[in-house]
């Protein structure tokens, strides 16, 4: 399988000369094995993905972690949605009352967007998830609620012996007892454990996090500890703050790694990176 990054910025698209290295598009990852086509989140990155996809892809599964705007804003600009021969499946978290369909409809309605879901040539097929396990093609997928405001899922995607874990928005410290020492009482642990690559929220430096406790995101320092606790092979830090430039992101990682050693690979996720297994 391959995983290609089309967007790893958090909260708001942030194009600009100071963000060339890590990119400005919000959350979107293509995951495919040549037959089955999955897309993790529909942030602004999905617009380019839609333009560069091969015409042979006729069934697409978009897996949404949650419905915050930075993870859904690209949906209406995803070309295949307007193609009569393409079937799009939308998967996302169940809430307590409002259905997933009605929450997605809010995006496709005035005053936010001119096209309504019913105007599309094919109505997307909606699948609601909670603590779920299911298969799409050869992918085995496991989801669970994780700590972030509003219903939010983490995804664990297995293909053969390889596992990708995806938690772009996740506040570790609030969702854990005695962090980082208690895996059974740490939100997201079952999603992340032993993954080949973990894409995980590391929006802030620790100083930034202290001013934003409860906003749903993690400090790079905590993300490193969580990756260690989960014994992943590689950590790709995700959901970069829109105000942090390439230089600042490099500096945040450098400072967090100073004087420490970890027995797994660590990088700041970059738009355009391709992971192959």
């Amino acid at each position: 399988m391959i995983a290609k990054i089309w967007g790893c910025r958090g909260s708001l698209p942030s194009p600009g000369p100071e963000n060339i290295v890590y990119g400005g598009n919000t959350s979107c990852i293509e995951v495919s094995d040549g037959e089955t086509f999955l897309i993790l989140d529909a942030g602004s990155g999905i617009q380019r993905l839609g333009r560069f996809m091969g015409p042979e892809v006729k069934v697409i599964h978009i897996l949404l972690t949650h419905l915050h705007i930075d993870h859904t804003m690209g949906l209406g600009f995803f070309k295949p949605l307007y193609h009569p021969d393409v079937e799009v499946h939308l998967w996302g978290p169940s809430a307590s009352n409002d259905s997933l369909l009605s929450r997605i409809r809010k995006y496709f309605s005035a005053p936010l967007f001119p096209v309504r879901l019913g105007d599309l040539p094919n109505h997307p097929v909606i699948h609601k998830l909670d603590e779920s396990e299911f298969e799409i093609g050869d992918f085995k997928i496991k989801t669970d609620y994780i700590c972030h405001p509003g219903p939010t899922l983490g995804y664990r995607i297995q293909h053969g012996d390889h596992v990708i874990a995806y938690m772009p928005d996740h506040e570790l410290r609030l969702g854990s007892t005695d962090f980082p020492n208690n895996p059974d009482w740490t939100s997201g642990f079952e999603i992340a454990k032993n993954a080949d690559v973990l894409f995980h929220d590391g929006a802030y430096s620790f100083a930034e996090y202290e001013k934003k406790v409860g906003w749903g995101h993690s400090a790079v320092r905590d993300t490193l500890q969580f990756a260690k606790l989960s014994q992943v092979k590689k950590l790709s830090i995700f959901h970069h703050e829109p105000t942090n430039t390439d230089e600042q992101l490099d500096e945040i990682l450098r400072r967090n790694l100073e004087g420490k050693s970890f027995d797994f690979e660590i990088e700041m996720c970059k738009e355009g990176l391709v992971y192959e297994f």
Binding site: Y145, C147, G175, S176, T177, P183, D184, W185, S187
Partner: peptide
Amino acid sequence: MPAQPLELILGRQFMDT
């Protein structure tokens, strides 16, 4: 033991305060 569901983790966090 599998890890606890989020609601119980947050419940414990809340009680702890």
